[in-house]
Design a protein around this nucleic acid. Structure first.
Length: 430
DNA sequence: TCTGGGGTCCTAGGACCC
DNA sequence: TCTGGGGTCCTAGGACCC
């Protein structure tokens, strides 16, 4: 058999431009170009229609006339009250310094007149499926990285090597636009690490090609923070050593990085700075855990707000249970998460013998976990999590067969915290 | 008027077994 | 009785990402 010439690995990272906001622009094209922030509470179309009918009597306002609603009828950031954060900001809003993950109250100070719309989850999911399926028809090796991001392996796709991947990237951009009306940015590089950075080079609606020989000119000048896996903490520590750019990171000895950042992370930092990454594009993955959590409108106290907290707790357990059943999983580890009013976080969990997807079993064990934390302080957030997931009725890793209907575990006398108020919160546990 | 809601992965200590 | 190592599982916290 004649030896095939070795193909150069070409990996693409694609992300949709301001995805959640762009989805809204499909519905309300008249908002294009205006500063807009997505996040916060629920949709208030009915209120908008009522005000429109009052302002323009005789005209028929409804779902068919969304694109004719005057822009000054849309809700503004300055009118928002609550604890939400921005999911996405349009490029016009980013000019004012508004960014995703920013608290809406802070965003309102920066850009009070920005239009504020909540996320349309159904439409986001529909368009997410649509753009990913569009890509799969062209390049089937695709890794899902959330609603608006994917990695694609171009290596063996016909045309995937032409112009370093630019030709295929253009085809994908064009196909996605035809199918959805949405734009995206694509970076193509020798691996996922570099591709991820490259997709940011040319936003929105851009394509960037990085070849192995471009490492020093295109990657090394960038701040360390641009590496996917270097977050705010690691970045601050690196800065403390005078390391600000990827090039400066690459200049450090591997042994020095290992000595200061640990064997695993230090070695990884070194590889990343030299642009080395051989992770494959993973087309399948199994979930590890499922959880639901909620931040309260105001901080709650286990005793004084016992009824409200108890109802929220039950609802979270029911939601996790419903999520598990809908997706066909059950889990053996049940846990809770609490954020106190000062943002301190604690978690507790318990592993039981048999996997469950029952809301009442989850609630019973999560309730036991709650007894092990300090409930004398005000709470900002409560979460319920189920981990060690298995598909009921299928063989799990250790060969045991799990059933969805779990039995109650032995009740152990765990270390009760001195300020245990769960008897008030959950009298049935007494 | 700071700071959501889902996730994954890693580390580290202790229990327990061989 | 003491020392000691390897392996796995469980739990808690934390960094990071979308």
């Amino acid at each position: 058999m004649p030896a095939q010439p070795a193909l150069q690995r070409r990996i693409a990272h694609l992300d949709m431009d301001a995805f959640f906001a762009s989805v809204e622009l499909l519905r309300y094209p008249q908002l294009r170009g205006l500063p807009m922030v997505i996040g916060g509470g629920r949709r208030r179309e009915d209120e908008m229609f009522a005000r429109l009918r009052a302002a323009y009597p005789g005209r028929d306002w409804g779902p068919e006339t969304l694109d004719r609603i005057p822009t000054d009828f849309f809700p503004r950031l300055k009118d928002y009250v609550g604890r939400g954060v921005a999911t996405t900001a349009t490029y016009a809003a980013r000019q004012f310094g508004v960014g995703s993950a920013m608290g809406l109250m802070k965003a309102a100070r920066l850009c009070p007149d920005a239009i504020l719309l909540p996320v349309d989850f159904d439409e986001v999911r529909r368009l997410s499926r649509l753009f990913k399926n569009t890509i799969r028809e062209i390049a089937p090796v695709l890794e899902d990285r959330g609603v608006d991001e994917v990695y694609i392996d171009f290596t063996e796709v016909p045309g995937g090597q032409r112009e370093g991947g630019r030709v295929l990237a253009r085809l994908i951009q064009k196909s996605i636009f035809q199918a959805t009306g949405l734009t995206c940015s694509i970076g193509v590089a020798p691996n996922k690490l570099i591709a991820k950075m490259a997709s940011e080079f040319n936003k929105p609606n851009g394509i960037s090609i990085v070849l192995p020989e471009d490492l020093q000119t295109l990657i090394w000048p960038l701040p360390c923070r641009k590496i996917n896996g270097i977050g705010p903490k690691a970045d601050a520590r690196l800065a403390g050593h005078g390391i600000r750019t990827i090039g400066e990171l690459a200049a450090r000895e591997r042994s020095w990085l290992v000595a200061h950042f640990g064997r695993s992370y230090g070695a990884w930092l070194h590889e990343a700075a030299w642009g080395r990454d051989d992770r494959p594009v993973e087309t399948e993955s199994e979930p590890v855990s499922m959880s639901r959590e909620t931040t309260f409108e105001r901080d709650l106290h286990a005793v004084r707000d016992r009824a409200e907290l108890g109802a929220i707790f039950t609802r979270l357990c029911e939601q996790v249970s419903a999520d598990l059943r809908r997706k066909g999983y059950a889990g053996r580890t049940i846990g809770i998460k609490i954020t106190y009013d000062n943002f301190e976080k604690v978690t507790r969990d318990i592993t039981i013998g048999e996997a469950t997807d029952h809301a009442d079993v989850i609630r019973r064990h999560a309730g036991q976990c709650l007894r092990r934390v300090d409930l004398s302080r005000r709470l900002r957030l409560l979460g319920v999590r189920v981990g060690k997931l298995v598909k009921p009725g299928t063989e799990s890793d250790d060969g045991r067969r799990y059933s969805a209907a779990a039995s109650a575990p032995p009740r152990t006398a765990r270390d009760r915290s001195p300020d245990d108020h769960t008897d008030l919160l959950f009298p049935e546990l007494g």
